[in-house]
Nucleic acid binder design. Sequence first.
RNA 1: GGCGCGUUAUCCAAGAGGCUAGGAGCCGGUCUGCAAAACCGUUAACGUCGGUUCGAAUCCGACACGCGCCUCCA
Length: 493
Amino acid sequence: MALRVYNTLSGEKELFVPLIPGKAGMYVCGVTVYDYCHIGHARAGVVFDIIYRYLKYAGYDVTYVRNYTDIDDKIINRANQEGTDYRTIADRYIQAFDEDMARLGLAKPTVEPKATDHIDGIIRIIEALIAKGHAYVSDGDVYYAVETFPDYLKLSGRNLDEMQAGARVEVGDKKRHPMDFALWKGSKPGEPWWQSPWGNGRPGWHIECSAMSMEFLGKTFDIHGGGKDLVFPHHENEIAQSEGANGCQFVRYWLHNGFVNINAEKMSKSLGNFFTIREVLKKFDPETLRFFILSAHYRSPLDFSDQNLDEAQSGLERIYSCLAALDVVLNGTNPAAEIAVIENLSPVGLELQEKIEQFIPRFVEAMDDDFNAALALGVLFEMVRCTNRFLAETKETTPLSLSLVAHVRHLFSEAGGVLGLFTSSPAAWLEGLKTAKAGHIDMSPDEIERLIAERSAARAARNFKRGDEIRDLLLAQGIQLLDSAQGTTWNVK
RNA sequence: GGCGCGUUAUCCAAGAGGCUAGGAGCCGGUCUGCAAAACCGUUAACGUCGGUUCGAAUCCGACACGCGCCUCCA
């Protein structure tokens, strides 16, 4: 049983062997803070959150670094549009990012550095690159000379000649080679700047990640993550910078998450077909969004639509309903999960017992296989079905049934801790879902209650015709009635 | 133009040669005055054409369709 991860560099799943036994260093490219995050950011955040959680669960001492890119053309443009400074914009959207990610239940990384706090480190790397002949100064800018780095494009599996055939590369007159990229940009009037040996200016986009990862994780570390779209040029350039400057391997395992699609097309700022996390969370609860993201493998494309979110919500509701039923049985007690006697178990009880024993091994097997959360969820659902069956046939609780139920509950908490799910109290989550749905109807709760009372009276008088009329009336409003021995309640369909 | 990925039942989705994935839905059952909800059960698939193999959704080849990267992107 060992963790295997898909490494973009090799194009294969590889056994995960950390640089230092028992430890894992992980760097994930965060966001450029110039606008609210969209659900593509949510996916990247959730994906690497469960990778982080699973590495910890697997026993590694993990150092997780996720940066904020807080200086960039887009931030400056936004500041100019609003007539303010870059810092105001960056700080505003850093805060927004933190709020969004907290709502999605992301665990805090070990460090969340900002590019602008690492200008010194950035300058040191650029100096080293110049000294080694990998970079050159040109009219206040500094560029990386890609032809001096033979391994350039090894991550994306291209070559320089083919890239040029793409013909979308502009040949700047400051560059020696059209593919050379900026490490340092001389500041234009009105732009923020920092002092450097090459004059006042600011860092290029790629260099900050080389500087910050080296600062917190060293010259070589285990995992570097980000969206697929960062493979080229961002991560390719990071390799050129870090390996060019340090002369040793930069990253051992490159992990890239797939995109969120809208109607099978990539969702992106440039296409304008994106939804912000905030918009989505007005309609769906954060855990539903997280569950949806986890329902596909992290490298696969994920098609976003209301229908798919609805389905995710139904699935999550199924699990929470089961957990709520477990909590009712447990009724606040916390019996030992150890099973003392397993004679007397019915076939269904024996099956549950078997599922319980297999649960963690199967869960771990799924997650060990390149963090296959979708498969892991399948294991959870099998447990739900088996548990429901057991609860349905168990009329009275016994110490044995209680211990089985408690064991199941513990397992869901354990798996939920890795997936970042089931953190709410099941009853509260289900109630919250009902309340949220109730916000979408026109009828007031008082009016509904009045009609329910009238219907109950009619039914008591065996006037089922009138009772059914009221039921149909409410249903037309999207309100469905739930009759039970305790009376009638309602929810929104 | 170059490089790469994908195509699994009504929909979403896992699956790296022989083992019921799973979810949503449909349908059937339990429950109910009848329903609904809930629960249980059940159904069905591997883009096309070839090849390798005792055996292919899975490996190889061709084709078709879709998508991504090559420009800022998660």
